[in-house]
Design a protein around this nucleic acid. Structure first.
Lengths: 111, 111
DNA sequence: GCGTTATAGGTAGATTGTCTAGGAGAAACA
DNA sequence: TGTTTCTCCTAGACAATCTACCTATAACGC
C-alpha cells in the first residue's frame, strides 16, 4: 500500500475515470464497478472519492453529464468524454508512462 | 502531470527514498540527486518534500541517521536502512507493482 | 408485510503528502 | 567580494483521497 490508506495511486483517479468514460458513456456507479473489475479487484474507488472527482472533471469541461435510465430501471447520470477531455486523457497517459517508467528504473537499479 | 503540480507520483516518495538508501548509505542531498539522475531527470524531489520525508521515515524506524563527512568536506547526515526498513521497502515495492500493473491494465483496455 | 442487499446519487470533515517559499551556514570559485 | 554550490531545515498552503454519513428506489428472501 504505497499510498498508506489508499486504494489507489494518488493522482491517477482522474486519468482512470477519463479512460473508462472514453470506452463509452457510463454512469458514476458503473465507473467504479468497471475500475474494480478491469483491475481484477486491485483498485477500489470509494464513493467519497468518485463523486467529487466526477464533479471536478465536469467543471473543468472534460466530461459532460446527462441524466438517463440505467439498465436496472433507475435514473442515473451518464458521463461522456468531451474533445477537451480526450486531449487531457492523452496528456495524463503520457505523463503516467513517463513517471511510472522512471519509478521502475529506480526500483530496478542494482547494487 | 498526473498529479497536477507534482514532480512525483504521490505516495511513491517513501519507497524511492528507501530504495536509494538500500543501495548504500547516503545523505539527504545525495538522495535527491540520485533520484534525479537515475530517473533521467524525470523525477525531481523538492527539498521541502525530501527532509520531512526523511524525518518521517526515521521516526518510523525504517532509516537510521548518523552525522558524517560528505565527499566535499562538509557535515552531512547519512542514512542507512534498518531491517524494518528493508521489510517495508519490500512491501512497498510489491504494492507498487500491484497498483501500477492494475493501472496499466485499465489503460490498455480497448473499446 | 418486512428487512436486507444492491443500485444510484450526494456531502462534510479529517488526514496526509507534496509544494512553494522561505531561512541558515560553510566551502569553492570568480 | 560576491555568487554559486552544497547541505540542512521549517512553516503554511493546497489538493486528493478517505471515513463516515445522508437520501431514495428496486429486488429478493423470509
Amino acid at each position: 500500500m504505497p499510498t498508506g490508506q489508499s486504494d489507489l495511486l494518488q493522482g491517477t483517479l482522474d486519468m482512470l475515470i477519463l479512460k473508462i468514460v472514453a470506452l463509452g458513456p457510463v454512469h458514476g456507479y458503473g465507473i467504479s464497478q468497471r475500475i474494480h473489475q478491469i483491475s481484477r479487484e486491485v483498485l477500489k474507488v470509494q464513493q467519497g472519492s468518485l463523486y467529487p472527482a466526477l464533479h471536478r472533471l465536469e467543471k473543468r469541461g472534460w466530461l459532460a453529464a446527462e441524466w438517463g435510465e440505467s439498465g436496472k430501471g433507475r435514473q442515473a447520470k451518464f458521463y461522456k468524454l468531451s474533445a477537451k477531455g480526450r486531449r487531457q486523457l492523452e496528456q495524463e497517459q503520457a505523463g503516467w508512462h513517463r513517471l511510472a517508467g522512471a519509478v521502475g528504473r529506480i526500483l530496478q537499479t542494482e547494487s
